[in-house]
Write a protein that binds this DNA or RNA. Structure first.
Lengths: 169, 169
DNA sequence: CGGTATCCCATTTGATACTG
DNA sequence: CAGTATCAAATGGGATACCG
């Protein structure tokens, strides 16, 4: 069991839930159109008991929805529900980072094509308010309504751009 | 040992590297300005041997840089290197998803303030080419230069918006 | 085909103790 | 403070066998 004050924020909770050796891969498969149990198992090469666990978890979290199909509806397809579709930005962010730092000399294995405009695209994060690109040193985390007292304390001590190289202390 | 064809893409590689129970939390701490061994240990409540392992891994991956400090430079600070700063979009994406689906009734624990424009912000993903927001059903993954033969095969079979609800098969 | 149950092994975890 | 070493316990993994 971890310390008492972790998981207070959504990063922790989301990482705890999704940050699993297989979960992201299952999700990636889903974004590639995979829907059936055996397709997941074969494409990823994971054993079926684990797949069963993960799928069950993901359904219980509202990330996948089961859709019976086939003769007498005896079988299930796993389709992304809204909570699952909303994971796409996370997958994109992982893809971009991996391409930049892990892809090796051959270059990225996957390129995202934006069918709306026809270009290969490299998604960019902007501020929804002012439409400028998000720069790390222009973002300050502040306590929100759900912040614990501990988190509130910590966050309110942050000065602007806390991560910027500090003077030697 | 997983199947033969997994980890072919950057999502898999990045998830394998970062998708760990503690790694994301350590990174989040770093984005909050934490730099010292004991600060990490205390704020996260993880045991020091594990922290030691993770930090070593993150340094070896170029995510953190060690900066000696203190009397006789005997101690190390862990600062985000460029590869580490570039993880910020992933953390933001996790935060947004977590806030939306896991935060509960109290609301998000962390709000990102864009100091440049002064607003609390909810970062948005847009296409770098046409500047329109990224919609899941307008993105098609295509094989890139580093794609394996297997990945190339699979991706080239994807039709437009593969994840969209299909007709019953 | 679409799972579930069982079993065994490798790894990881966290407590604790120790060192410079 | 900043780690490393050790170790028992829990966990997670895959193989296999089994069921509707």
């Amino acid at each position: 069991m971890p310390g008492e004050q972790d998981l207070e924020d959504s990063v922790g909770a989301a990482a705890e839930l999704l940050g699993d050796r297989w979960t992201f891969l299952i999700l990636r498969e889903a974004f590639f159109g995979t829907r059936r149990f055996n397709e997941f198992a074969q494409n990823l090469g994971l054993s079926r008991n684990i797949l069963s666990n993960r799928l069950k978890m993901l359904v219980s979290q509202g990330i996948f929805e089961q859709h019976p199909y086939g003769p007498s509806k005896a079988r299930n397809e796993y389709r992304l529900a809204q909570a699952g579709r909303d994971i796409f930005p996370i997958v994109v962010a992982l893809l971009q980072w991996g391409d930049k730092y892990l892809a090796g000399s051959r270059g990225p294995s996957i390129v995202l094509k934006h069918t709306r405009c026809g270009n290969d695209t490299d998604p960019l994060l902007i501020c929804r308010a002012c439409h400028e690109p998000i720069e790390l040193d222009e973002i300050l985390p502040t306590p929100g309504p759900g912040a614990s007292e501990w988190a509130r304390q910590r966050l309110s001590q942050l000065t602007d751009s806390a991560f910027v190289e500090p003077a030697e202390r």
